[in-house]
Computed example of a mutant assay.
Amino acid sequence: MIKKLALSLVMVLAAAAPLTTPASAADEPVREISGHGLDACPDHSLCLYQDRDYNGTEDARIWIITGSVERLSAYDANDRASSLYLHSHHSATLYADAEHKGDRFTVFRRDQLADLDRVSGRSPGVPHAVHLWMNDSISSVWVGRDGL
Rank of each mutant, 00 (worst) to 15 (best):
T66D: 04
S140F: 00
A25G: 14
S24T: 11
T57H: 15
R71I: 05
A14G: 08
D136Q: 05
Y95G: 01
L84P: 04
T57V: 15
A16P: 03
L46N: 02
A60T: 05
S83C: 06
R109L: 15
D117L: 05
V12Y: 12
K101G: 14
E28M: 14
R122F: 13
R104E: 08
E28W: 10
S91T: 13
V141D: 05
G56E: 02
D79Y: 05
D43G: 08
S140P: 07
S140D: 03
I138C: 02
S45A: 15
W63L: 02
Y95I: 06
A60M: 03
D97Q: 09
S24E: 08
I64D: 07
D51N: 11
G67H: 08
G102P: 00
H90Q: 11
T106E: 02
S88H: 01
R80M: 10
W133H: 14
P29H: 02
T20S: 09
S82H: 06
N135P: 00
L86N: 13
A92E: 03
Y49D: 02
A23S: 11
L72V: 02
P127I: 06
A23E: 12
I138K: 00
M1R: 14
G121A: 04
S140G: 01
N55V: 04
A6T: 04
R104C: 08
S139R: 01
S68L: 07
S140N: 04
G144K: 05
V141S: 01
T106H: 00
G35W: 05
L9S: 15
R110I: 13
V126G: 11
I2R: 07
D111K: 11
L9A: 15
A81H: 00
G121V: 03
D51S: 10
G67P: 05
A25L: 11
L7G: 09
A81V: 00
L9E: 12
P22W: 08
V126E: 10
P22Y: 11
G144I: 06
L48E: 06
C47A: 04
A129C: 04
S24D: 04
H36V: 02
V130N: 09
A25N: 08
L19F: 09
G56F: 00
W133P: 12
T20N: 13
R109M: 14
L5D: 03
D115H: 11
P42L: 07
D115K: 06
D76P: 07
P124F: 09
P124V: 08
L9I: 14
R80G: 01
P42K: 10
V126A: 09
A6M: 15
S83F: 04
L38E: 12
S68G: 15
D59P: 08
M11Y: 08
L38T: 13
V143T: 09
G102S: 00
R145I: 10
L13K: 01
K101H: 14
G67Q: 07
L38R: 14
R61G: 04
I33C: 06
A40F: 07
D117G: 13
S82K: 03
G121I: 00
G125Q: 05
